[in-house]
Design a protein around this nucleic acid. Sequence first.
DNA 1: TCCGCACGTTTAGGATTTTCAACAATGCTA
DNA 2: TAGCATTGTTGAAAATCCTAAACGTGCGGA
Lengths: 192, 192
Amino acid sequence: MSAALQNDDTLDDIGTRLKLVRQIFGLTQRELARRAGVTNGAISLIEQNRVSPSISSLKKILDGIPLSLADFFTLNFSPSDNVFFTADELTEISYDPAISMRMIGRKVKDRSLQMLRETYQPGADTGDAMLRHDGEECGIVVSGSVILTVGVQERVLSPGDAYYFRSDIPHRFRNPGPEPCVLISANSPPSF
Amino acid sequence: MSAALQNDDTLDDIGTRLKLVRQIFGLTQRELARRAGVTNGAISLIEQNRVSPSISSLKKILDGIPLSLADFFTLNFSPSDNVFFTADELTEISYDPAISMRMIGRKVKDRSLQMLRETYQPGADTGDAMLRHDGEECGIVVSGSVILTVGVQERVLSPGDAYYFRSDIPHRFRNPGPEPCVLISANSPPSF
DNA sequence: TCCGCACGTTTAGGATTTTCAACAATGCTA
DNA sequence: TAGCATTGTTGAAAATCCTAAACGTGCGGA
């Protein structure tokens, strides 16, 4: 469904990689060029793989995002296995029939999460300047619905739907609907 | 003691990084140039930071090592805390006075090792084509002595001396002395 | 000592990349 | 529909990188 890059180094395709990164961070060629102190033409040529940029150029461009060279070459853009989980994709881990404990993002490792209950009133919006911070983030909608944008992916989440992504990917919550949206979310590391 | 690179991305110094990598793998500028299909002059200029190589060039050069771009930018060359341990630096972990259990590389994490007893007859040599494989490797000399080369570091190990290093750093054992050398070593992961 | 060899460095010139500016394509608004 | 703004793409010139060949240095053997 989503265009994913190879996660290993088989991807010589610097252009595609740059383009995807740029789009994930919601930048145009010109805006990135302005931030990076290069021309939009250069970025265009690089993204088309018509030139192979020098390290210094690529460094300048990535600084405009910002993203380190190491991260640029290391990052696995294949949406962390699953970014989205439908309601029936959650794992039930409770043996007590009176209690349901459904686990989110069951395949993801190295978790150390902290849960939150969030309420988005109608019209609420975390803003255009997409959120970015370290760690991981996941959640599930309890009532109402919300539009979640993660990188280039966007989806309306209804009650029972959930998400799991790395927080350093820009993300945004909006509730354009008529009723409040309640969701349970979790952050890592538990920093507060 | 040993010249270590910064481990994070603060190192824009591609030249120094390349030079260190090249030396760790025991290659001359000309030899690497030949393997990579570039000229020795280009490598010289890059190592002096007098030019900022294009991605394509850097890729070609690293292919001659071989080393991926991701690894090149990610690798932490600071010698895994301690490569060498003198006899008295080993941690005694046994409470039984009749038994001594001295632990090697006590600070290193994520271990899953398999020990070996190796004997190097006089003149034995694992060869010029330096060994490289995944995982980690450690050992201690029981009798005799051996010359161990790990990356750019080289040392004569006498009975009681030990080592611990990542196996993807090229390494070589030689016993130029008159008597056999016995050492206990361990590999990870335990692949056989 | 002299020679040969291997190493890293340098320089001039050809090859590639980057800039600057103009262009086409798309979408939005009057 | 026309006008305008914004986006990505191109072409020629300037800037930068890479090659080929020569240079200087150090080391080991005759």
